[in-house]
Write a protein that binds this DNA or RNA. Structure first.
Lengths: 227, 227
DNA sequence: ATCCTCATATTGACATGCTAGTATGGACGG
DNA sequence: CCGTCCATACTAGCATGTCAATATGAGGAT
């Protein structure tokens, strides 16, 4: 078969490729909550056998993005309030602790990269490019974990972000929320620069509390929409 | 084949059964760091095919307990300082945040269960039953996540504990460390009882800092032992 | 109309065969 | 004696076949 693949996917295993494709579709709601995942169909579409599709779905199930009912079917997980809140809990736990460590060891190089990211966020937002803004948002948070060399934690963070992304995409952002987010991001970098770990941790806590409040306003609608 | 299985494993999938067996052997160092995991052999021993063994090993690899070298073999992961420190980082992040929440909502029933656990720890330690003491230790930490209803976080915690367990088992406990641990556990429960979330978080931070110091004294030996 | 019964279709879990990539050790050249 | 090359053995990843469990819907009984 040996189909042509995008360069970035060249040396990925088929399982990882399938995982990436499905995960993106779920996060972006192309596959909405409740949608059935037919292995045979997915395998055919992506040009692989059922085995890597099963492996990918197992992994998504472990992350909570897919519900598997043995001998019945696999479905995109519903957006449950409890799951969303726990995802935010995990984010808060990991990211405040990360800030605590980063503030104590941030060097000039890292600070510069963070500042560059903030500049790019500012530009993206002024141009009204929300998709790029959110990508930079994710990159900023990832840079924090890169700086303190906690790759496994970064992976857990990414898993925790997925449920939150789905909520964000289900409702339009509140008026002025992206601007407020940018302000909070600036505060995060300033807090890292200060070298005060308590202050850095509280800046992240404040940021995620704001994220939590924004999400809580959306949850009732979502719950109502599909039980 | 239909072999007789322990009751507790009755309704588990074969993958989960294999996962549990391998995980326990790795944590308890029955399978030491570097040991090869021969799928065929394991499959034969446990009376299953290679498929569930492969799935179980994939899962262990995601937790960092196994290193997989494609087309070469799968081996019990070496105990790397960076991994151990990150595991403790994750524990600190999740458990301090959990304490923060639990202090705000702990009711009498939960407090009673925690007190019962402490009593059992005291008894186990006075009898010199260290294995039971460590089981109760793990149960205490698990109860915290049960109380705040964060099942996914509990799972992450359990994954984070495994590398730390391996370190603990590789070296005898320092003189008096178990007694000190019990004292810290008492402080944790007292902190929860106080209802002060900052105090509760700092009690957990203090406990895990002590765990960290105990582990750091052992790491050099371990590093030296097997690169 | 409502509740069973049961044939059917569909699925996940598992078994097993195949392919291609990698380390290893021995033969060979220096 | 030492380094290089290559045949070999072994592996993970993948493909595919099988099976048992479940939902579904038609048909019959109450």
């Amino acid at each position: 078969m040996s189909q042509i693949l995008p360069v970035e996917d060249r040396d990925l295993s088929k399982t990882e490729r399938v995982y990436g494709v499905l995960r993106r579709r779920i996060r972006e709601l192309i596959l909405p909550p409740g949608a059935p995942l037919r292995k045979e169909e997915i395998a055919l579409e992506l040009g692989v056998s059922r085995a890597p599709v099963s492996d990918a779905i197992t992994r998504l199930a472990e992350e909570g993005l897919v519900d598997v009912f043995p001998q019945h079917g696999s479905f995109v997980a519903a957006i449950r309030s409890a799951d969303v809140r726990e995802a935010l809990f995990i984010r808060a736990a990991l990211e405040t602790e990360a800030m605590r460590q980063l503030a104590l060891r941030a060097d000039a190089k890292i600070i510069r990269e963070l500042d560059d990211n903030i500049a790019a966020q500012t530009k993206a937002l002024s141009q009204g490019n929300l998709e790029q803004f959110y990508d930079l948002d994710e990159a900023l948070h990832a840079m924090i974990f890169g700086a303190i060399e906690k790759p496994r934690s970064l992976r857990l963070l990414e898993a925790a972000r997925a449920p939150l992304d789905r909520v964000r995409r289900l409702a339009l952002p509140e008026e002025g929320r992206p601007e407020q987010t940018l302000t909070e991001h600036r505060s995060l970098v300033d807090a890292i620069r200060s070298g005060d770990s308590e202050y850095a941790a509280s800046a992240m806590r404040a940021h995620l509390s704001a994220v939590g409040r924004a999400i809580e306003t959306k949850l009732p609608d979502i719950e109502a929409a599909h039980g």
